[in-house]
Design a protein around this nucleic acid. Sequence first.
DNA 1: ATCGGCTCGCGCAA
DNA 2: TGCGCGAAGCCGAT
Length: 450
Amino acid sequence: MVQPERIFNLKTTDTDNGNVVYWMSRDQRASDNWALLHALELSLRMKTELAVVFCLSDNFPGANIRHYDFMMEGLNELSSNLQLKNIPFYLLQGDPIPNLRRFIVENKVSHLVCDFDPIRIKQQWKEELSKEAEVNIDEVDTHNIVPARLVSNKAEFGAYTIRPKINRLLNEYLIEFPDLPVQEKTVTFKLQQTDWVGIYDRLEVDRAVLPVEWIHPGESAARDMMEYFLGNKISNYANGRNDPNEDFLSNLSPYLHFGQIASQRIALETQKNNSQDQNTQAFLEELIIRKELSDNYCFYSPAYGSLDSIPDWAKKTLAEHKKDEREHTYQLEEFENSLTHEDLWNAAQKEMVITGKMHGYMRMYWAKKILEWSASPEEAMEIAVYLNDKYGLDGRDPNGYAGCAWAIGGLHDRAWSERPVYGKIRYMNRNGAKRKFNIAKYIAKWSNVE
DNA sequence: ATCGGCTCGCGCAA
DNA sequence: TGCGCGAAGCCGAT
């Protein structure tokens, strides 16, 4: 039984006893998925059929073939996993709203289940669908451990304000998932088989940003990555996570972004370690508190990803320093092609372009310097978000928007000593990086790679 | 190596 | 109303 607080009813109609469809979007997995479990429960209660539908929109803002490749391979594996449970999976290409409307009518669907997502376009889609389709709609938060709508009803000021709210509810929601049962009903949904290759070839997206090889998409690869992290790397997490020359990070963010693994699953497995251990503590803080704070930020700040969403003290101080002279100023193209005067920054940019991921410590440094070297804070924010979304496999995610707003706009942070350009926004520089790790080694690693 | 100051405002205690 | 303390730091003093 899915906890009722996870379920948020978006629309109720008079129509009942039709089929059920789970419109999967953010949480692309068969196991550990409360939305899917709820959809199956609904179909059992009404003695009707369940299908899963994924709408593949060509012009999803900022997405390119690197993202589509990772996502579609994951969806392909997902469709086989669902088949084992006798749950049909349909990949519909194009604008989701007309596709879903048609699907609902053709398959006599009375109940639609969707997952929770604070990203703007997802919210718009749900609003449009509510208006344009005669169907009951339930939204299930299966991305956050403590449902985002429940944990707080406003944009939180910082980690320290959301932490007690999450911790208060954690025991209740950080529970084991049931196995996904097999659908007993004979399936009669009308649609042909998914043409995976054809759909991939027809995608009208930027194909210049290449897929990456070092990380493999899909639920089972996500589990492997998690197990490798917990078995080999987490024991160095607290002290080693800020050294970009070391490989102590979980590398789970691409999987989390596409929902190929549940953060709740990772938290459950992590807890099986000694939970008093400082490495476990540090990792869980990032996995739970900071990650769910990002969802809170995007959900309650309509202007997320821009400087309209930052606290007043930060707006004020950035405005006061808007006209400060910049020692270096670069345009998007120069940033994008690693053409700044600084080898350390250029190395970080290359790491992201080549691998689809940038080390956590360097992300902060990277975004701070974009603020320092752009014509205005607004332009800096735009450039940082654009580059992170375009090259990061974990881009277009609340974590990225919160991260850029933290570095450039003081979001969830406090004021610090005033200085040129930054104002009271926390400053970072090369000396700090030098104190923490061997920057020459990091620079060398990326300087000769094309 | 370690520490305090920098500087703002939320949230809780009183 | 006062006070403690906070998403990842920097800098200078000791």
